[in-house]
Amino acid sequence: MSLMQDLYVVIAVSAFWLIAMIVPGLDFLLVTRLAVLRGRSAAWRATLGIATGVAIWGICGFFGIRTLFYAAPWLYLLLKVGGGLYLFIAGCTLLIGSWKPSAADATTASTDPTSGGFRTGLLTNLANPKAPVFVSSLFAAAMPQHAPVQLGLACVFAMFAIAAGWFGLVAMVLSHERVSAAFLRCRRWIDRCAGLAFMALGIRFMTERTPG
Rank of each mutant, 00 (worst) to 15 (best):
L3H: 15
Q5D: 13
V10Y: 06
A12P: 11
S14C: 13
F16P: 09
G25L: 14
L26V: 13
L29I: 10
R33C: 03
L34H: 15
V36E: 01
L37Q: 05
L37C: 07
R38F: 13
R38S: 14
G39D: 05
G39E: 01
G39I: 11
S41I: 09
A43V: 12
G49Y: 08
I50S: 00
T52G: 03
G53A: 11
G58N: 07
C60F: 15
F62I: 12
R66I: 14
T67K: 13
T67W: 10
Y70C: 08
A71Q: 08
A72E: 09
W74D: 09
L75S: 10
L78D: 10
K80L: 04
Y86I: 15
I89Q: 05
I89R: 07
G91S: 11
C92R: 13
T93W: 01
T93A: 02
T93V: 09
L94F: 05
W99D: 00
A103V: 09
A103P: 00
A103D: 08
T108H: 13
S115Y: 05
T120I: 01
L122R: 04
L123G: 00
N125W: 00
L126D: 06
A127L: 00
N128S: 03
P129K: 07
L138T: 07
M143K: 09
P144C: 07
Q145S: 11
H146Q: 11
V149L: 12
L153C: 09
C155V: 05
I162K: 08
M172F: 13
E177H: 14
E177D: 14
R178F: 01
A181T: 14
C186A: 14
R188L: 04
I190T: 12
D191Q: 11
R192E: 02
R192N: 09
C193E: 03
C193R: 09
M199P: 10
M199L: 13
L201K: 03
I203R: 02
I203S: 04
F205Y: 11
T207N: 05
T207R: 10
R209S: 12
T210K: 07
P211G: 02
